[in-house]
Computed example of a mutant assay.
Amino acid sequence: MPTPNPAAMDFLLTRRSRPSKTLTAPAPDRATLETLLTAAARSPDHGKLEPWRFIVLEGAALHRMATEVEKTGQRLGKDIEAIAKAANAFRDSPLCVAVIEVQKPSEKVPPLEQTYSAGAVCLALLNAALASGWGANWLSGWASHDRQFLTDALHLADNESLAAFMHIGTETSAPPDRPRPDLSRITTWLDA
């Protein structure tokens, strides 16, 4: 008979990301953030490849990221509102962790499984932050899909891409829950 963890299950059934625009300082300190990152790094990782890494963005680094987003938006011909919204996500953020997918050569673990592992790390970091009482939001955005932005702003190697910008801070307001998937529409039960 399994040993249940009702508190963990209640958290998972009620968890809700916090919009990044509602997050403010203080953000987790270094020791607290290291605990959250440790929890995230316990994600499934076939072959023990660690096909991900973290870049912690704070203070001046967040303002530099906002400037890089503005430059990228102008280069890509984005409208001024889209540029401002994307830049302000960094400028207004108390802390951001860039989760970087790192594709590694492997005969046993195909690239797609490495991508899944990076996604698992993102969800684990989000849930670790929320379970610790912080507000957190997983974002990406148009700039994160631009190779030049990733190279210029984050100095990513050719085998690296962005899995998430995870904004973490103190929530200023709790959002209402949103409609959730209808389980009967997305589940197929097979018994033979």
Rank of each mutant, 00 (worst) to 15 (best):
P111E: 14
L112H: 12
E113K: 07
E113Q: 11
Q114L: 01
T115H: 13
T115D: 13
T115A: 13
T115G: 07
Y116P: 03
Y116S: 10
Y116Q: 09
Y116N: 12
S117N: 12
A118V: 02
G119D: 14
G119C: 05
A120D: 01
A120K: 03
A120H: 00
A120G: 01
V121P: 15
V121A: 15
C122I: 08
A124I: 01
A124P: 01
L125H: 03
L125C: 02
L125E: 06
L125W: 05
L126A: 09
L126N: 03
L126V: 11
N127I: 06
N127K: 01
A128M: 00
A128S: 05
A129Y: 06
A129Q: 04
A129I: 03
A129N: 06
A129R: 01
L130D: 00
A131P: 10
A131N: 11
A131H: 10
S132A: 12
S132W: 04
G133W: 12
G133T: 08
G133Y: 14
W134I: 03
G135H: 01
G135L: 00
G135W: 00
A136H: 01
A136P: 02
A136G: 05
N137T: 07
N137P: 12
N137A: 10
W138E: 04
W138C: 02
W138T: 00
L139C: 13
S140F: 05
S140E: 14
S140D: 12
G141F: 09
G141Q: 06
W142C: 10
W142N: 06
A143Q: 02
A143V: 07
A143L: 08
S144N: 09
H145Y: 15
H145V: 06
H145S: 13
H145Q: 10
D146P: 07
D146Y: 07
R147W: 13
F149I: 03
F149S: 02
F149P: 02
F149Y: 11
L150H: 07
L150K: 05
L150R: 04
T151A: 09
T151N: 14
T151H: 14
T151R: 06
T151S: 08
D152V: 04
A153K: 01
L154H: 07
L154G: 02
H155M: 09
H155L: 10
L156M: 08
L156D: 00
A157W: 09
D158P: 15
D158E: 11
N159W: 14
N159F: 12
N159G: 08
E160Q: 11
S161Q: 15
S161K: 10
S161C: 09
L162K: 02
A163D: 11
A164V: 13
A164E: 11
A164N: 11
A164D: 15
A164Y: 15
A164M: 09
M166K: 04
H167Y: 12
H167D: 08
I168F: 02
I168W: 00
T170N: 13
T170V: 03
E171K: 08
E171T: 08
